[in-house]
Amino acid sequence: MKKSILNALERNQLVDIIYISKKNEITKRKVKILKVLDHDFIAYCFTRHSPRTFIINNVLAIMPVTRNEREVV
């Protein structure tokens, strides 16, 4: 998972993550990764509109954002 996070950081890419919160709730967040540390990473969370720290081991999935979600398909 860390490799995917580092790739998103290098590409300056927005990603959707599926994440287990500290309260054991599964959430989906759209984030822009700002910095990767040993066991966690700092990202701007578009859900909370602020920088947040995420634990790498709590990320269940990571997917690049390829289109605007408001777009009608």
Rank of each mutant, 00 (worst) to 15 (best):
M1Y: 06
Y19M: 05
I62D: 14
Y19L: 05
F41T: 02
K28M: 07
V59A: 01
A61P: 03
F54Q: 05
S50P: 00
Y44Q: 05
L37A: 15
V65D: 08
D40M: 11
N58V: 05
R48I: 02
L34C: 11
K28A: 12
F46D: 10
I55G: 12
A8R: 02
N68L: 07
Y19Q: 02
E10I: 04
K23L: 14
V36T: 06
P64S: 08
E71H: 02
A8D: 12
I33L: 14
R29P: 13
F54C: 08
F54A: 11
K22A: 15
K3H: 12
K23F: 09
D40V: 00
V36L: 14
T66E: 14
T53W: 00
T53Y: 00
I33Y: 12
K23Q: 12
E71Q: 10
D38M: 03
D16R: 01
F54V: 09
A8G: 15
T66N: 11
I18M: 08
I26R: 06
V59M: 01
D38R: 07
R48E: 07
V36C: 14
Y19K: 04
H39R: 05
R48N: 10
I56V: 13
R70D: 14
T47S: 12
V73L: 13
N57I: 01
N24Y: 10
P64K: 00
S4K: 11
N7R: 14
N58E: 06
L6N: 13
I20R: 02
I18C: 07
S50Y: 00
F54K: 02
K2I: 11
E69C: 06
V31I: 15
H39K: 09
K32R: 11
K2P: 09
I26D: 02
L37D: 15
H49R: 07
I20L: 13
Y44K: 04
K30V: 02
K23Y: 09
H49K: 09
S21M: 05
R29L: 10
A8L: 12
V31K: 01
H49S: 13
E71A: 10
N7Y: 07
D38I: 08
H39P: 02
E25G: 05
T53S: 11
N7W: 00
R52V: 10
K35I: 02
V31H: 03
V72W: 01
L60P: 04
F41V: 06
N12D: 14
R11E: 15
